[in-house]
């Protein structure tokens, strides 16, 4: 292992105890022989890691619990959880909650709805106008058929009656 690779591991897995024992010993051996890498390790531990360990933890003030209780009182508007669960997770949760027997029909229904919603016939102006024209034509023809058997207008009634 060369110094470049050792430096990479020093800044991450070695300093964070994420390495397997064999690799850790290899690096330790290298550090005992390489002043440059040993210097980096010392710098990391003293200047970069130690300041974080030395600071005491903050504790939430007691009034926060009261504020939270007030915030979740009945009638208070609920906050939508957007950070915690992704859309993919939500779909997964719904699918897992379904009984196996219902899973296939539900998935089939979802696919059919998705196909219908994305169908090229949806919002097709040409098809809509064609259906409208055909409907008018049928209605008009039916109307003619009805009028052919009788007197459709007041003028016809005047001359023919």
């Amino acid at each position: 292992m060369n110094c470049g690779r050792i430096e990479e591991l020093l800044k991450t897995d070695y300093i964070d105890n994420e390495l397997d024992e064999k690799t850790r010993l290899l690096i330790k051996e290298h550090l005992s022989a390489c002043r440059k890498c040993a210097g980096l390790e010392a710098q990391l531990r003293e200047k970069i890691i130690a300041p974080f360990k030395a600071v005491e933890k903050y504790h939430p003030p007691e009034y926060l619990w009261q504020n939270i209780k007030d915030g979740i009182a009945p009638g208070v508007e609920k906050f939508p959880l957007t950070e915690g669960i992704s859309i993919a997770d939500r779909i997964l949760i719904i699918l897992r909650a379904l009984k196996p027997a219902y899973l296939v029909p539900v998935l089939a229904a979802v696919v059919v709805i998705a196909v219908l919603l994305s169908s090229p016939l949806k919002n097709n102006g040409g098809l809509d106008s064609y259906i409208a024209e055909q409907s008018e034509f049928i209605i008009d023809n039916n109307g003619d058929a009805i009028n052919a058997n009788g007197l459709g207008t007041s003028i016809e009634e005047y001359f023919l009656s």
């Binding site: 504020n67 939270i68 915030g71 979740i72 906050f79 959880l81 950070e83 915690g84 669960i85």
Partner: peptide, 11 residues
């Protein structure tokens, strides 16, 4: 912190 715990409670 308040926001987090209200989200937790509601969800």
């Amino acid at each position: 912190t308040q926001d987090v715990f209200i989200k937790i409670y509601n969800n």
